[in-house]
């Protein structure tokens, strides 16, 4: 039951994302990417196993419209453990 609810919501989400994509609005993919100050807003740093300056958490999803940043992604970035 719970499982199917979830699938339903995901389906709606997918339809919605498709609709956005038709209008050339696409989510900015950030996880495990290098931090990019042109489309990501850093909220903070956390130590992690990931290489430094890599996005380890997406707090708010960002979107692009064509080649413009519609909304910047808000992210948390990894930092060197040794520091």
């Amino acid at each position: 039951m719970l499982n199917s609810d979830r699938q339903g919501i995901e389906l709606i989400r997918r339809n919605f994302l498709d609709l956005l994509k038709q209008h050339q609005i696409v989510p900015i993919s950030v996880l495990e990417q290098k931090f990019d100050p042109e489309c990501m807003y850093a909220l903070g740093q956390q130590t992690s196993d990931a290489p430094p300056n890599t996005v380890i958490q997406e707090v708010v999803r960002g979107y692009r419209y064509r080649d413009r940043v519609l909304r910047e992604a808000q992210v948390i970035v990894s930092t060197d453990k040794t520091r």
Partner: peptide, 18 residues
């Protein structure tokens, strides 16, 4: 990180990360 100069919003975005 690559040594590119950032001024304004771009610099502000990375403040918490760097």
């Amino acid at each position: 990180e690559a040594g590119k100069l950032l001024v304004g919003r771009d610099a502000l975005r990375q403040y918490a990360a760097a």
